Amino acid sequence: MDVLWNILGVVRERFHNNVAAAVMNTPIEKWIKLVIIAGAYMLLRPYIIKLGGRAQMRSHEEEAAESEAAYQKAQISPNQLRGQVDIPEDSDDETEEGALASGADWGKKARRRQRDMIKKLLDAEERRLQETLEEEEDKDIEEFLIPS
């Protein structure tokens, strides 16, 4: 244990001597340069922090505007969606009298499968939109809940 205290004493003595020698042997020009750099840092730091805060606030506002725009774009009611997609009628006729056939002349089963597929896609999209709307409502409600 005595050896440990001797080592610590030597380290303390060498540290003290080295620091004192470095301070005493430093020319005045370097001290002036150090004081100018430290003073400039202390004077300019608050302004630099304010400038960074403004840039960060601007960035957050842009992100919020983009997410709000995406949210507004994503809000489509099922009635609006129904108006956008044309579902073929449940008729088994190839074409009506006087009307031209559009695209390939499909058979009866193919047309029925196509109608069913479009209806399933519309129902899935309506369910997804309803779930996202419910999640948004849940998030709005969570804001007002008091944690216990």
Rank of each mutant, 00 (worst) to 15 (best):
E89M: 13
S102N: 14
L81R: 05
R113H: 09
G98C: 04
L81T: 00
Q114N: 12
E96W: 15
K119L: 05
K109I: 07
M117C: 13
G98F: 05
K120W: 06
D93K: 15
D93H: 15
L122I: 02
D86V: 09
G107Y: 02
D93N: 13
E97Y: 10
K120T: 08
D92K: 11
R111S: 03
A99I: 12
T95P: 07
R113W: 05
A124F: 02
P88D: 03
D93G: 08
D93W: 08
L122M: 05
K108I: 07
I118L: 06
P88S: 04
R113F: 06
I87F: 07
W106Q: 11
L122G: 01
L81D: 02
Q114C: 11
A101N: 10
K109A: 13
A99T: 13
L122C: 02
L81M: 05
D86N: 13
G103I: 00
D93V: 13
Q114E: 11
I87M: 06
R82L: 02
L121G: 10
K119H: 04
L122V: 01
R112H: 08
M117P: 08
R82A: 02
G103V: 00
A99F: 13
R115Y: 00
L100F: 09
W106C: 07
R113M: 05
E96Y: 15
K109Q: 09
D116V: 05
G98T: 03
L100W: 08
A99K: 14
E97C: 10
W106F: 14
D105M: 15
K108H: 08
L121E: 14
R111E: 00
E94F: 11
A110N: 10
V85E: 00
M117T: 14
D105I: 15
R82T: 02
D93Y: 07
R115S: 01
G107L: 03
A124E: 03
G98K: 03
R111D: 00
L122Y: 01
E96D: 14
E96C: 10
D86T: 08
D86M: 12
E97V: 08
K119G: 01
M117E: 14
S102T: 12
E96L: 13
A104Q: 14
M117F: 15
K119A: 01
L81V: 01
L100H: 10
G107W: 01
R82P: 02
